[in-house]
Write a protein that binds this DNA or RNA. Structure first.
Lengths: 133, 133
DNA sequence: GTTGACCTTAAAGTTCACTTTAAGGTTATG
DNA sequence: CATAACCTTAAAGTGAACTTTAAGGTCAAC
């Protein structure tokens, strides 16, 4: 079975060595085996675990939430828990989309109103921020 | 003309006194007049300026961007500049909506696939994070 | 005349997710 | 055998946008 130094793992996973050590301190990565000279030695599945972390981050999960998901996996815990976490995340994302969409609508409307010429005094953009909030 | 202490301004604007002093340090709020005892004394339009800041923040502008907008207003600068800043912000928001929508689609699909019952092993949510990224 | 609610400053703390620095020890290459 | 490229730790720094703390001075009410 192949094993890796932290630098090799970093290259294969796309996560900086320092970040890997950080994840270890934060209990997202398990403490790996050590060589005689105290170097960390990782098994192949450490790559998948780091990629899981990367992907979950891209999905907007915080490290706290990712840790929860990983701990569930490690303990082969209850699927209901994972669903609860993911559901909460989906709601968070939908909420964000809604408020961004509202802002998008008002902002694009305002931009159309503003000729982009003349002095700031009376500028529709500034007035929109001041009034419509 | 009415003037206010920082506490009164805080109440009227909904911005904490400490945050108001912070905005002063950060050049978002001008240095106000002082009483004999060195208390800050604000004119009425300080309320509107703070509300402008609050609203711009809700629209996703950073304090740096808000400072730029306020400086343009103070200098009665060029409307084209304000439009440029707002345009950049609109693009940022549209970009955010797009990537959140992509995540929303995959995450809601995944949630439908997951019964929410049984052990973590083989859970569609975990697999989706691990694979689809 | 003292209590309590205000105000002042500078500096340090918060959260998140790392990155950077300092001060070393180890291993691979020429 | 030197030197470069790895590895180790602990601690401090980053950035955004504040908040909290420390150590006071001031003002209104009873």
């Amino acid at each position: 079975m192949k094993t890796f130094n932290i630098g090799e793992l970093s290259e294969k996973s796309g996560v900086a060595s320092h970040a890997i050590r950080f994840y270890e301190r934060e209990n997202l990565m398990p403490e790996p085996a050590r060589t005689q000279s105290n170097y960390r030695r990782y098994p192949e599945d450490a790559i998948a675990r780091l990629q899981f972390i990367i992907h979950a981050k891209q999905w907007g999960f915080t490290l706290d939430e990712i840790r929860e998901l990983l701990m569930l996996q490690d303990a082969n815990g209850d699927r209901a828990e994972a669903k609860r976490i993911a559901k909460k995340q989906l709601e968070k994302i939908r909420h964000q989309i809604q408020s961004l969409s509202r802002i998008e609508a008002v902002l694009s409307e305002t931009l159309e109103e503003c000729s982009g010429e003349g002095p700031m005094d009376g500028c529709p953009i500034v007035e929109a921020i001041a009034q419509k909030g």
